[in-house]
């Protein structure tokens, strides 16, 4: 079952059959320019499924270039008809893996395509490490799920709109929820850690409120931000984070906001920063003074002394101490 050279007419290759396709959703323009200049360097591979009819195995983008260039026939490397399909697929996947330079979309597709051809142990020990994908715990099944996403979702992986961690999180979401999540990430194009923050918080809100995920992603408040023509992506991301934080931590958000407002109302000098305990936890506040010289410092300390006893400080303090608690013993 050796590969052999054959001249094949393009019209004898079944373009609809994508059994061996692993789309990388890459920009064809650069490749086409190179092909225009240098022509084909590596041969395309086909399988002669039945006598005179061929299925493309390797070279999908180059085939597209050939067709566009009006080429009618060319030399192919051909698997003979009796070659088992699984063997060809395995060879194709191995070749892709070890040729390297794969994007996430390609990696997960290879994982998904390899899954029925290899044992769980081989996937975990050899294939996944070679792909650079985690094979711990349930990671194998998750990446295989990702590899089976519809093409328009996989394309977002290739375009790095979705980070690897976010893809892992989204692996088990149903199509509808994932569709909504990916639309949001596509609108924001934010960093991997911010993607995770947004997705995890929204998921927790959904669990907490017993509400379908896609409904949360389609809330009007969110759409108003993502669809806004006035905001750039960075501004949209900041607003979405704030909005999602408000949904996820409503009381903490309200309290932090109120405290911030009281501090702003106090109109502290520009040389001064007053900060409550981080996350309001503990009893360590911070007052930072910046000064130019000892006299300036003395003046600022005098200001700070007055400020301690001022109604403005009291208002800030009251806001901090205020809880909706009933019956708290107050000193």
């Amino acid at each position: 079952m050796e590969l052999e050279w054959k001249t094949v007419r393009l019209e004898d290759v079944d373009f609809q059959d994508t059994a061996f396709a692993i789309p990388g959703f890459k920009d064809d323009a650069a490749l086409f320019r190179s092909l225009n200049t240098l022509g084909l360097i590596h041969p395309l591979v086909v399988w002669e499924r039945e006598s005179g009819r061929f299925v493309l195995v390797d070279g999908f983008r180059r085939m597209e270039w050939l067709r566009r260039s009006g080429v009618e026939e060319t030399r192919f490397l051909v698997y003979p008809p009796q070659t088992p399909e699984a063997r060809i697929l395995k060879g194709r996947l191995e070749d892709k893996i070890f040729r390297g330079n794969l994007n996430l979309a390609e990696k997960v597709q290879i994982a998904a395509r390899y899954a029925p051809l290899a044992s769980g142990q081989e996937l975990r020990r050899r294939i996944f490490p070679a792909l650079g994908l985690s094979s711990k715990d349930d990671a194998v099944s998750r990446w295989i799920q990702v590899g089976r996403w519809p093409a328009h979702h996989r394309e977002l992986l290739a375009r790095e709109v979705v980070s690897e961690r976010a893809a892992y999180l989204l692996a088990s979401w149903n199509d509808r929820d994932r569709d909504a999540a990916l639309a949001l990430l596509d609108a924001l194009r934010c960093s991997a850690s911010i993607q995770m923050e947004i997705l995890e918080r929204i998921r927790e809100v959904a669990v907490r409120d017993g509400c379908p995920l896609h409904e949360l992603f389609r809330r009007e408040e969110l759409a108003a931000v993502t669809d806004s023509p006035e905001l750039n992506r960075r501004e949209k991301t900041a607003r979405v984070r704030d909005l999602v934080a408000r949904w996820r931590y409503p009381r903490l958000h309200r309290k932090t906001q109120a405290l911030r407002e009281r501090i702003e109302e106090a109109r502290l000098p520009e040389t001064t920063v007053l900060a409550p305990p981080p996350h309001l936890e503990g009893d360590r506040w911070e007052l930072r003074l910046s000064f130019r010289n000892p006299e300036d410092l003395e003046a600022q300390i005098a200001w700070a002394k007055d400020f301690c006893r001022s109604p403005r400080m009291q208002a800030i303090w009251d806001e901090f101490e205020e809880t909706s608690t009933h019956g708290v013993v107050r000193k």
């Binding site: 907490r208 931590y249 936890e281 608690t325």
Partner: peptide, 28 residues
């Protein structure tokens, strides 16, 4: 899915007002 913050010991815990409410009601 509660309103947890990272406490000073690194554990996640409800932010202070929630804890205060829970405790105060019980103590009363």
């Amino acid at each position: 899915t509660g309103e947890f913050i990272r406490g000073l010991d690194g554990k996640l815990r409800y932010f202070r007002d929630i804890r205060l409410e829970l405790y105060a009601e019980m103590v009363k």
